[in-house]
Nucleic acid binder design. Structure first.
Length: 282
RNA sequence: GCGCCGGUCGUAUAGUGGCAAUUACACGACGCUGUAAACGUCGCGACCUUUUGGUCUUCGUUGGUUCGAGUCCAACCCGGCGCA
């Protein structure tokens, strides 16, 4: 079984830095696991690693799509899995690094996610319906999915119906085989320290020209509505707003990660580094 | 000083005689196998309780009317606007 390193954790805990360090040491390449860093031009606001900080280590799944267009987990998964395979073929070690738990899980757990594009016409139709009505439709189309889905979650119901309509009733496997051993490493900071880090980071964002970045995105044709979707940094951001929202987000990240008991948590990146080396030597 | 409006659970609000009291945000817990910084569910005065349950303390302050007051009345305090 090929080993793959996984570095996850809350925002601003130093994941990218640790990833580069370990990559240098063990001849690795990095696969980003961040739902927003996949977009070109979202650099400052997403805290994307700079060319200089990469120190020559190849990074995958950064800047792969135009922000005008949407991106989905399914696409992420496809790209990440093929990147992983290629890196191993080159005799190197993949390091998945990021804070989007859902993206990470689809890669690590080998969930099957066929690509189904958004169907705007269908969506417009479904949007007017209540969750209860949507649930009835889904039950008819795909009773298996209806069994697991949250019957009150409109957004997910619509997506499930969209998928069921596109794929029909073809039975599909839930999980594909994985030949990787994931070494799960988490970085976390106590609340007060995390807060300071976030404040520092946000201050730097504005200094580095967040507002300018937004202006450029607009110039490139990204609509206001789209910007709002891309995150709170991109829609009328103020220092206070971004700090408080980021804090909130960091908390949510943790509730996701908490569920995976196999993650080994560290406060200090250097002890995480040491532990990772030991794991690879095994 | 006169006139008007207003002071409600962290904030913003609803509530004109039966209310521990609406909604939103924030906050907390949880879920998440398909847009994930999204989305959903639950909780949010205190204490007790197996419960559609009980007790206590709350709507600026003090007093009054009433079986019953956030709601009506009086005085006072604070804020906004208008006239002086």
């Amino acid at each position: 079984m090929k080993k793959v390193i996984l570095i996850l954790g809350q925002t601003a805990t130093g994941k990218s830095d640790l990833a580069v360090k370990i990559a240098k040491k063990i001849n690795g390449e990095i696969i980003s696991a961040d739902s927003r860093q996949v977009y070109k031009g979202l650099d400052i606001g997403t805290g994307k690693i700079t060319q200089k900080e990469m120190r020559g280590i190849p990074h995958h799944l950064l800047d792969v799509v135009n922000p005008k267009r949407g991106f989905s987990v399914a696409e992420y998964q496809k790209h990440a899995i093929s990147a992983m395979a290629e890196i191993i073929k080159r005799g190197k070690i993949p390091i998945i690094c990021g804070g989007t738990g859902f993206y990470i899980d689809t890669v690590v757990n080998g969930i099957i996610l066929p690509e189904v594009p958004l169907n705007q016409k269908l969506r417009r139709q479904l949007m007017t319906k209540s969750a209860a009505a949507l649930f009835v439709i889904l039950k008819k189309l795909d009773s298996a999915r209806a069994k697991n889905i949250d019957s009150k979650n409109g957004v997910r119901l619509i997506r499930a119906i969209e998928i069921a309509k596109a794929l029909g009733k073809v039975p599909r496997p839930k999980i594909f085989p994985q030949n990787y051993k994931f070494i799960k490493t988490g970085l976390y900071l106590p609340a007060d320290k995390l807060k300071k880090r976030i404040e520092k980071r946000v201050k730097k964002m504005f200094q580095d020209g967040l507002l300018n970045e937004i202006k450029n995105l607009k110039k490139a044709g990204v609509s206001n509505k789209r910007l709002e979707k891309l995150g709170f940094e991109y829609f009328n951001p103020t220092y206070e707003k971004v700090v408080s929202q980021t804090l909130k987000y960091a908390k949510r990240q943790m509730t996701w990660f908490k569920r995976d008991k196999k993650i080994r948590w560290f406060t200090s990146p250097s002890s995480a580094f040491a532990w990772l080396q030991k794991q690879l030597a095994k």
